[in-house]
Design a protein around this nucleic acid. Structure first.
Lengths: 225, 225
DNA sequence: GCGCGAGTTCAGCGGGGGCTCAGCCAACCC
DNA sequence: GGGTTGGCTGAGCCCCCGCTGAACTCGCGC
């Protein structure tokens, strides 16, 4: 069982490391969000413990970004004080559990054990909106029972839209998440791919799941159109 | 299947490496305990073979420390002489099995096979995708009733793909699991082996079980094509 | 030594996916 | 209705990725 602890308070961080190692975990520690994200990208952990307040990249953001990257490692968030605001934000961003500081070490261990036992199986293996389904692992898409062929870029864009089904997503957001950060080409590319997606997941089936919200962006109907 | 061998006798170490690679394992070698611990920390092996007597850090100590770090990779310990003292120390330190020098290579392979089989919870003895079957123990492959001849590396790659049937696996993932860490050659090698596999398990049977997912990787059809 | 087979490297190719662009159309405002 | 703005469309170019065949190395057995 390998854990990642992201905590900027050095004292707490080393205490957690020693304590959790005593419980039989292998523990990696990062002192800020940037380093944490790097480690999370490069390694496969059985669970992560994130502080909400972090320099560089907050726990919330880090959590969101891991989920967007398709990483469903169990995440336990440490919130500064038991404020319902922080707690709900933590869960919204995709955390599996949270713990308010100050906390008892035994409670932390118990929660972690629950998380790692629950483990990996119940990650949403398939994203869906109505009868539109996408499986990130096998890289395949269906409308109902009909398989749909998509190019990698089309797939990546649909995956992103599905993770935000029901929300309106701006073209800029799509650009920055689906295209490389350094992309500085014609933003029209988003429209081009919207069209390609519609031609593959909507038109042949007489649907309209991918809606235009003029001047704002696009919205994927969570019911599939 | 990836192994770590920690053995300070260079002659024996390289013999083990070659022999085990001939059995289809990817093998990393460390010549002392320190290097061994480093590699064990940084990588996830399917089993480790440790010599008891090692410069730097003895096999016993290394074993103990891996267990303390929460690493329960199956460990086979090589003891210098069949002394009950060494054997019991080996098992006490958390090893799963031991073998007294001098030993027969066939016995080593058999014990390793038992360990890696036991390791993950009761994996099926025969891997299959549709009518494509692979038996890790006897090292044989069939398409339907027709036996298929594969070289060790081809076999190892097919075994890995079968264990992840249905998923898309990237070339980098394949490289790191089927080749050992010191390999830094042309990644094109994966494409070459994909082609060889297709020529043996697909083309003669008019199948297409090994699919290319452009820019992402390869996927073995869990139904065999 | 010689031949063989496995593993690896390499260069060329062919196609398809990514992206651009210019023109068209629909919506909104006056 | 006319103008303006933003989104849609279809064609086309280009380059990257994956495929392929052949050559080379190395170890091993005869």
């Amino acid at each position: 069982m390998r854990l990642l602890v992201v905590e900027d308070d050095k004292h707490l961080a080393s205490a957690l490391k020693r304590g959790l190692e005593g419980e039989g975990y292998a523990v990696d520690v990062a002192l800020d969000g940037i380093e944490g994200e790097w480690l999370a990208q490069e390694n496969e952990y059985d669970a992560m413990v994130l502080d909400v307040m972090l320099p560089g990249l907050s726990g919330d953001e880090l959590c969101t970004r891991r989920r967007e990257a398709g990483d469903w490692t169990p995440i336990l968030m440490l919130t500064a004080r038991s404020g319902p605001r922080q707690e709900s934000r933590a869960l919204d961003s995709g955390a599996d559990d949270f713990l308010a500081k100050p906390f008892s070490f035994m409670v932390l261990v118990a929660r972690l054990r629950a998380l790692t036992r629950r483990g990996r199986q119940e990650r949403p293996s398939v994203l869906a909106a109505g009868d539109l389904r996408l499986d990130p692992a096998s890289h395949r898409v269906w409308r109902g029972d009909t398989p749909v062929e998509l190019t990698p870029r089309q797939f990546s864009m649909l995956e992103f839209l599905l993770r935000r089904a029901g929300e309106v997503v701006s073209k800029a957001t799509i650009l920055s998440h689906v295209w490389d950060f350094s992309f500085d080409g014609d933003p029209n590319i988003v429209e081009v791919y919207v069209r390609q997606l519609r031609q593959r997941i909507d038109h042949p089936f007489g649907r309209a799941s991918l809606q235009t919200v003029r001047l704002v962006g696009y919205r994927l109907d969570p019911d599939g159109g």
